[in-house]
Design a protein around this nucleic acid. Sequence first.
DNA 1: AATTCTTTTATTACCAGGTACTAATAGTAA
DNA 2: TTACTATTAGTACCTGGTAATAAAAGAATT
Lengths: 198, 198
Amino acid sequence: MCKVVLKISKLPKKKRQQHLVEKIEHNPFITDEELMKCFQVSIQTIRLDRMELGIPELRERMKSMAEQTYDQVRSLPPDEIIGEIIDLQLDESGISIFEIKESHVFSRNRIARGHYVFAQANSLAIAVIDDEIALTASAHIRFVRSVQLGEKCIAKASVKSSNNEQDKTKVEVNTYVNDELVFHGDFVVYRSEDNGNK
Amino acid sequence: MCKVVLKISKLPKKKRQQHLVEKIEHNPFITDEELMKCFQVSIQTIRLDRMELGIPELRERMKSMAEQTYDQVRSLPPDEIIGEIIDLQLDESGISIFEIKESHVFSRNRIARGHYVFAQANSLAIAVIDDEIALTASAHIRFVRSVQLGEKCIAKASVKSSNNEQDKTKVEVNTYVNDELVFHGDFVVYRSEDNGNK
DNA sequence: AATTCTTTTATTACCAGGTACTAATAGTAA
DNA sequence: TTACTATTAGTACCTGGTAATAAAAGAATT
């Protein structure tokens, strides 16, 4: 938890406060009691330090982090599909929308990082396959033009008949911003009944 | 906060518990006391309900939400490169490491979502280009085998001589888990001095 | 009507992780 | 010695609970 530091002489106030900031930054879930043991000072000293540094108590720290998550969850399901699927005909076609936010762009030029555009298309290609589990096998993709901050990407997927091979399906995804093509991808997706671990 | 419901007769237990779940889902920051006022029952009833439904107390709810945020921040800097670059020879080669965490996999089978593996490769392909700004133009990718939760992906990029065209560079990326190839990608990357907005 | 069972409420003791305030003590500089 | 800063100690109080026990209210069954 807290590195055992041989502490012949206690740190001076300023140093301690510096380290305190770092410690809490590094592990926001630390209690005053744990901090007190780290620095070998009384709990009051820790609290005085927090006061001076304007660091809120553990519960307040957790609360504000939780609020962050909550806001994020509301706006962008972090774990699931990238982009919001607004239409889905299984094994036929699908449409998803994904708006490029601050966190998706290079800060220097506000152009979307390629992998977000890819992720939207990839998620959609997987979602459109009507199978217990589907995995991307390969893809051929082209970034037709760069996507800017604030633009809404509309990805349209259509499943191409899985001709010869039974377990592989071709899915074509085109992504548009205002009817202008920005991304094209040809995906080959595995569909496997047996949970397909290779 | 809590809709004022005319409450001639109190809800039966089952209904109340149903509504309780919804209420907490809709606003995880609600206290038992607020809930008690919503349902016009005693605070003990609310707590019995929470127990039966397996809903943890407010502070625990906040804590686990906060942990989510924190884990996300740690594992996936939303803004930056995906994967940690550990070696980089500009315009020549690069290596990055990326460990597959809970948030990167399908929950059903713990297989990594393709776009994370792609994102690592894509980030590396961009990073290896020694230019003010580089963008992925197109890519041909193959997911050789699925990557499991916990596995460490080592992506190796090598820049292929940008032969004919000045502004496009080919970058080959191979990703390995324990020396086993899991992903291959041929990227074509734009390098543009003039900040290349098309 | 009496009995049993479920549901609800009340009460009390206790907990973590604090805030807020007062006071005492230690160490150091003028 | 005095003055000042830094630290420690102690107490009361807070929120939002858990845990456990008991009593009361309501409904269903015999």
